[in-house]
Every structure is written in structure tokens, then in C-alpha cells.
Amino acid sequence: MASPMVVSTGGRVAALGVGASAVRFVSAGLLVPVVVMFGTFYWWAVGLESTLETGLPSSATLAAAFSLYGSVPVMAGFAAWKARQIEVYLGGKPATRGRAASFVVLLWPVPVAGLAVFLVLLVVTMVRNGNGVDWLLLLPVVAVIPAHVLLAVVFGRGVPAVVSVPVVAITSWSWFSWAPATGGWLWWVRHLTGVPTGCCAGSTVPSVASQLGATGVAVLWIIAALLLLRGQRTVTALTATVAALGVAAAGLVPGFAWIALTHTWGAWLVVQDATAPMWPPWAAGSST
């Protein structure tokens, strides 16, 4: 039967591309306000209150990074919820496209929303306080957001939303909250969240190693999540995760070496108070 080509009344919207579909799919009308609300709360209540020092580039970026405390768990929850819908839809359908791509093409607005909120808060902070951008702090932020979202997708696609949403949201929030509180032999974990908190103030200089370590961990989490979404064996993803921790540890090794060689708290490892002398630490007020 010859089939007439019919142009639907929504042709104009369709012409906008997959963007419109993805934005609709993730319930952006709900996602964005919630991300803004939680992200702004942490930026305002914690970031601005505890870190901002006019004139120090890191302080504005750091203050904005605190929004991740609130925005990332929200994004993770949304991602888990929507991932389940995609998984149910895809189940039992043959597809030429890869599994990971099938999720990403509909879920990309979730991390983009969080990143946009972060950037807006960063600009607001910069304008308000005259700070610049600290690119070293920006690096892990950009990696941490998709890492949490993708891991939430991996978990959420196989679990009903009523379970997965609170689990991933609480886990994500706990990671941001627990890690900075670690001490003892686990002290280096506090630097891996991507938000240099727990030991930092707006007047500090972030450690290069810690930020690269956090970025490395996030990137390898992304790789692990993509491997799992592609249907690779679990062991592959576990290997990637272990490698992530290894890279993080390796990133901090130079710091250890620095300490061993110089017995000095070098700027390579620790967060330093930019307004105080670097040594001795009790005089500088620096911490690990």
C-alpha cells in the first residue's frame, strides 16, 4: 500500500531535533527548579558563608562548587528514575544502537542542568565578589556531575524508581558529606569528591594532586558506568573502578614523596592558606 507522506502538526518542534525530546523526557520542568533549589541552597548556605574571600580566584569557584552537594544527588535521583523508564522500554527490543548511547541520547539534559546551575552560580559569585575562575577547581566539577549521573543510571535501570531514587540520592549526598570527614589512613579520600571541602576555605590554594585525583576518579567512574551500560561483564567495570581508586592514590603519591623528601607540607599535596606562611603547618593553618 502506498503510504502518503504526512507532515504532523508537530513538525516545527521535531525540527528542533532530539534536544526537545530529551528535555521533555527528563521532565525538565520539574528537574530544573529542583536542581536550582537544592544547588542554590548549598551555594548560599554553605558556599558563600564559609568560603568566600574577595580577590582570591579559588573562592568563587569553590563557593559555586558547593552547589554540587545539593544538585548532584537530585540529578542522580532523576537519572535513576528516567533510566528505569528507558530500560523498561528497551527490554525485549532489538536495537542496532549501543545500549549506552540509547540512554545518553535521552538523559543528557540531566547533567547539563546541574552544570548550568553551577556555571550560573559561579558567574553570580564572580560578579558579586569580583573573583576570577579557578580552572583547577573547575576540572573535577565537570567530571563529577556526569560520573554521578551515569552511576545512577547504571543502578536505576534495574531497580524500581521507588527504591533507586532515594538510594542514589542519599548515596550521592553521603559521598559528598562523608568523604570530607574522613581521617586517619583514609585521609586522602576527602579530596576525591570533586568539591574540596572539609579542609578548605575560600582563602586557600587547592592542591593540584587532589584535584587531578578527584578528576581521575570521576573519569574512571564514567568509564566504568559506560562499560556496564554497554553490557560488559561486571568485572570489567569493577576493574575500572579499582583503577579509579588506584589513579587517585597514584595522583597523591607525588605528595607523599614530596613529604618524604622535604618533610615539608608542599603546595603539591595540601591545601594551603594563601594568606599565611606555608611552614610550619600549625602556623600556616593548613590542613590535609
Binding site: 531535533g17 532530539v18 526537545a20 521533555r24 523526557f25 523508564q85 527490543k93 536495537a95
Partner: peptide
């Protein structure tokens, strides 16, 4: 299965993309 909040045409287009066609 309906796919979340997608419109009918969006769901069918997504299926076409899954089958290997360009967007």
C-alpha cells in the same frame, strides 16, 4: 511500553534511531 513523557512522534522517531537511522 510508552516512553515516559515523550510524544507519540518522538517515541517513534526514537525507535527509528534505535534501529540505526540518523536522528
Amino acid at each position: 511500553q510508552p516512553l515516559g513523557r515523550l510524544l507519540v512522534r518522538e517515541q517513534v522517531a526514537y525507535a527509528g534511531w534505535l534501529a540505526g537511522q540518523s536522528h
